[in-house]
């Protein structure tokens, strides 16, 4: 990134978010989470601990699950980002099949951790598209996402059942 700051502390960055191109002027010390929530109004990405320990703010950046609360927004320059709002983009249904699986299995209670859970699961399943995944693999993949309601069992089942179904379709 060339630092094209016009005023002190301002930078211009370009990125792709949920398949749309954006060019924005940001503060050099802005967090990616604040850019997503406050400036773009995409409030499906949540903030809980604010220190990279709970996973509520998980997004997918260049194919990897990351905590947007500890990523400088400046680093989004040139990146490709998916937030919960983009999960079912381009699909006929309003919900991604993974989201439907969460509903069917009762994997959502208060819902605060759900966007992060879904994105961690999506990143994990995308990276392992050609192989069978176990419940243990799924637990490891969502171990950075803390849920205080469900006890995780139904979340793991929801992801597992979607993984099996997806495999059947392949």
């Amino acid at each position: 990134m060339t630092n094209s700051s016009k005023k002190r502390g301002l930078l211009t960055i370009s990125f792709k978010l949920n398949q749309e191109d954006y060019t924005m002027e940001i503060n050099s010390d802005e967090r990616l989470l604040d850019l997503i929530r406050n400036r773009l109004g995409l409030i499906g990405t949540k903030e809980s601990c604010g220190g990279g320990e709970c996973g509520a703010c998980t997004i997918i950046m260049n194919g990897l699950a990351v905590n947007s609360c500890i990523i400088p927004a400046a680093r989004a320059d040139g990146a490709e980002i998916i937030t919960i709002e983009g999960l079912s983009k381009g699909m006929e249904d309003e919900l991604h099949p993974l989201q439907k699986s969460f509903l069917e299995k009762g994997a959502v209670q208060c819902g605060y951790c759900t966007p992060g859970m879904l994105l961690s699961a999506k990143a994990f399943l995308d990276q392992n598209s050609g192989r069978e995944v176990s419940r243990e693999d799924i637990k490891e993949a969502i171990s950075g996402n803390i849920c205080r309601c469900t006890g995780y069992q139904k979340i793991v089942e929801a992801i597992y059942s979607y993984a099996l179904e997806r495999k059947g379709n392949n």
Binding site: G52, G55, T58, L64, A65, V66, N67, I70, I71, S120, F124, E140, A141, S143, G144, N145
Partner: peptide
């Protein structure tokens, strides 16, 4: 280290 989101970064 940490969890996946931390290890990725």
């Amino acid at each position: 280290v940490g969890a996946l989101q931390i290890r990725n970064v």
